[in-house]
Structure formats: C-alpha cells, structure tokens
Amino acid sequence: MTEPLLSVRNLRLDIPTGSGTLHAVRGIDFDLNRGETLCIVGESGSGKSLTSLALMGLLGKSIKRNADRMTFDGIELTTASQGQMRRLRGARMAMIFQEPMTSLNPAYTIGDQLAEALLLHRKVSRQQARDRAIELLEKVGITAAESRLSQYPHQLSGGLRQRVMIAMALMCEPELIIADEPTTALDVTIQAQILRLLHDLGREMNMAVILITHDLGVVARVADKVAVMYAGELVETGPVRDIFNAPSHPYTRGLLRCIPLPGKTDRGAKLGTIPGIVPSLVGEVEGCVFRTRCPHAVAECRGDIPKREDGNHAFRCIFPDGKRHSEKELTV
C-alpha cells in the first residue's frame, strides 16, 4: 500500500468564545490518495470550511488546531513552519473558495493575479507566467483568453471569476486542490459546468480533489470517497458506492432522503430539512451529537459511541448497522 497523499487523524478545532470554547471540529479522521476525489457533505455550520482552512493553514489566529496526525505527502502540517506552509500553499496544495465575487483582488488585472500564483513559487519569466496563464484560462473554458489578461475582476461575471480562480489554483499544478462549495454563489446553470470542469481537470492532472458541496447528484457522479459531516464530526466516511448503496449512519440516510426526485419532490422544497435542532458545540460535548434529531435515539446514545469500521467504510452509532435494516424504503 502506498502512503496516502493526505492523512488526517483526530483533527480538533477549538474556538474560544465569550460563553466558552466552541468545539467546532471534534476528532475527524480521513485519508486521501493521489488522484482521488473526496466529497465532504453536510449542513451549513458543520465545520466543512474550517476543516479545509485547517489543512491549508489559513485559520484565523484565535482558532486552536490540534491533531494526532495531519500529513501531506509525509510532511506533518501541524508542526510545519510558516515558510514551509507558504511553499506548499499555491504550489502543491491549492484552494478555491465559495465567494468568486470577492475572492479576487479588485486592484489588479486577471493576468497579474494569475501570473503571481506562478511567480511566487517558480523561477520563470513574466512572459512564461503570462503564457501559462493564457494556457490555463483556455483550459478552464474561457474564450479570448489573451484579452482577458488585461481585464479587472469587476469586468467579469461570477461564473468567469470562479473559472479564473480555478485557473489560478492550477497554475503550479498542485497535487491537492480543495474546492469549498465553489458553485454555491453561482447560477444553477453554471454550477454543473464548473463542477464538471473541476472534476475533469482533476482527472487529467491526476490531482487529489476535496470537493465540499451540497449537491448529492454531483457527489454521486464525481466522488471516489464521501465524508458526511455533522456538527463537527465525520459521522460516516467511505467509498461512494457504500455511502449511496448502504448508508449506515441515520444522518446520512436523512441527507439522502432529502435529494429532490423528479415528480416526487415539490418545487421549491428545501434541501436538508431533517427535523430537529443541531446541539450547541460550546463546552463539553458527550454522546452522539445526532441524538437530538435521530429517529432511533435511545438512552445509550448519551454514552460513548463506538466507531464501526468495515474496510474503508466507517461510521459512528451504537447500533451495529446504524438501524439501516429498519428503514425499508431506502434499502430496496
């Protein structure tokens, strides 16, 4: 077995707040191999963005990061120096953000910002950086690429800006690319195009991709692995087939049940509407975090919850099958 490109064990993120410590991410584990696509799904506020920022070393100063292990190609990220992280960021691991409208610097041209990504890490001439920028703009499907170089962000639409962000992330051919809800802010018609593009480029360049998305249809098409996040925990992780064919955690099943089905789901029905409220993560958190909303919750769910592993498929529940077999309609 080759060493995974990214390996995370027991990652914890704590944020001090006025009313106590917010345990925003509590002990998550996952591995990602080169060229693989991992999709992280889960409701807003579950800690997906914080997890990706933690990997990039871009968390705010007030947020405390701890992990038993968080390695990228064998480099321990928790103990890496500022300089080491800087040499990784943009060069070997890149990130695409949720907000294309505000993620580009309004004062510089697209060309300058693309070139900067390469010039920061490689000893190349401005002309070479420019050529590479044109090449990538074409790759992400932007027409008249050369003339775009002298344009400013405000002259481009949201979809184009996100394509530019993708091109920028690819300038140095990173081994890992993290895309945090890259299409949430965009038009529905453009969303699919951008996600497809990201997926195809990932394949073409043999990049590992972490894609955070709400779109389970996309997950089914592009993911190799899926991690389901709930209230700061990965409640279920596994190969995409297992997650869709044998969703074991009750929360995963709840999410899958929320996929709109043509003809069956009402127009405008809200996604992810599982009844109940997410518990506060301030102070000590004990037992299963999902028990306030779980239809199968019993008294024992307040105690320690075992992690159940079967090969690469893992989930946390006191029931060995997560009560999967009691929910007939999903296991047909």
């Binding site: 990039m56 871009l58 800087r86 040499r87 990784l88 960021r89 943009g90 060069a91 890149a94 990130m95 953000f97 907000e99 505000t102 993620s103 580009l104 610097n105 309004p106 900067e116 990504a117 920061l120 890490h121 962000m165 920028m168």
Partner: peptide
Amino acid sequence: SDYIRTARAKGA
C-alpha cells in the same frame, strides 16, 4: 476580505 485569504492561499 476574501481576496486577502486568496493571496495567502497562493503562498504570498
């Protein structure tokens, strides 16, 4: 702002 985060993400 977001573009400052982008600059850091580039490795500046």
